[in-house]
């Protein structure tokens, strides 16, 4: 048997997606063919997805092998820990008062911390430190302004790459601060806080 492991994982993923979609769609009125309700098209879409996924499943039985690089137990453990951290931080932050719980800060903090946890392992750093640095940009931008956000994002994302040297990172951050000021603030004039908001 030449089972295609990648495709099998796809089947699992897509089936899960379709089933969750169908479950959520139970809230929506299907309507009639003449006056279709909000649930009509989602129903068609998710059933079609299930049918297609079944097709992928049968293909996957024979068109392998296409193995996935297996994850080590430690790798799995830190990802699970990271996912847990997302929920814990989100819950804690959204119940905390003040800045922590305001607007989308709980989501940003949860994503940031959740991405930092798996980054303990070197093999996860490209994925999770890059993601974390992007989330960090969102957290910092509004309270501390564009310049601080740029520096923080560059520094955190630089940790994802072993070839970086401190001086190079500092130079890169300084250059980007200057470039972004010229391009976005001076030339295009977009609306974004540039410096820390004192009030």
């Amino acid at each position: 048997m030449k089972i295609n492991t990648k495709d099998m994982v796809c089947v699992g993923l897509l089936t899960g997606f379709a089933l969750i979609g169908l479950w959520l769609n139970m809230d929506h009125n299907l309507g009639s063919a003449r006056r279709m309700g909000p649930g009509y098209m989602p129903m068609l879409t998710f059933y079609l997805l299930l049918i297609l996924t079944a097709g992928v499943f049968f293909q996957a039985l024979t068109n392998g092998p296409d193995p996935l690089t297996p994850w080590s137990p430690a790798e799995i453990a830190v990802v699970v820990a990271g996912a847990a951290a997302v929920f814990v931080v989100y819950y804690a932050a959204s119940h905390a008062g003040g800045w922590l719980g305001a607007s989308w800060n709980p989501l940003g903090l949860a994503l940031f911390v959740g991405c930092l946890v798996p980054s303990i392992l070197k093999s996860w750093r490209p994925l999770f430190l890059v993601s974390a640095s992007f989330a960090l940009f969102g957290i910092i931008l509004e309270p501390l302004g564009l310049m601080v956000a740029i520096v923080a994002t560059v520094v955190v994302s630089a940790l994802a790459d072993e070839t970086q040297k401190p001086l190079g990172v500092a130079g890169c951050a300084a250059f980007l601060c200057a470039l972004c000021w010229v391009v976005f603030i001076w030339y295009l004039d977009i609306r974004v806080p540039v410096w820390p908001q004192l009030s």
Binding site: V130, F134, F137, V154, A158, D161, C172, F184
Partner: peptide
């Protein structure tokens, strides 16, 4: 190593704006 932080920053500003 200089390119990718720049892409990240430009994407982030673009998405926010």
């Amino acid at each position: 190593r200089y390119m990718y932080p720049s892409i990240l920053i430009f994407c982030a500003i673009g998405v926010y704006s």
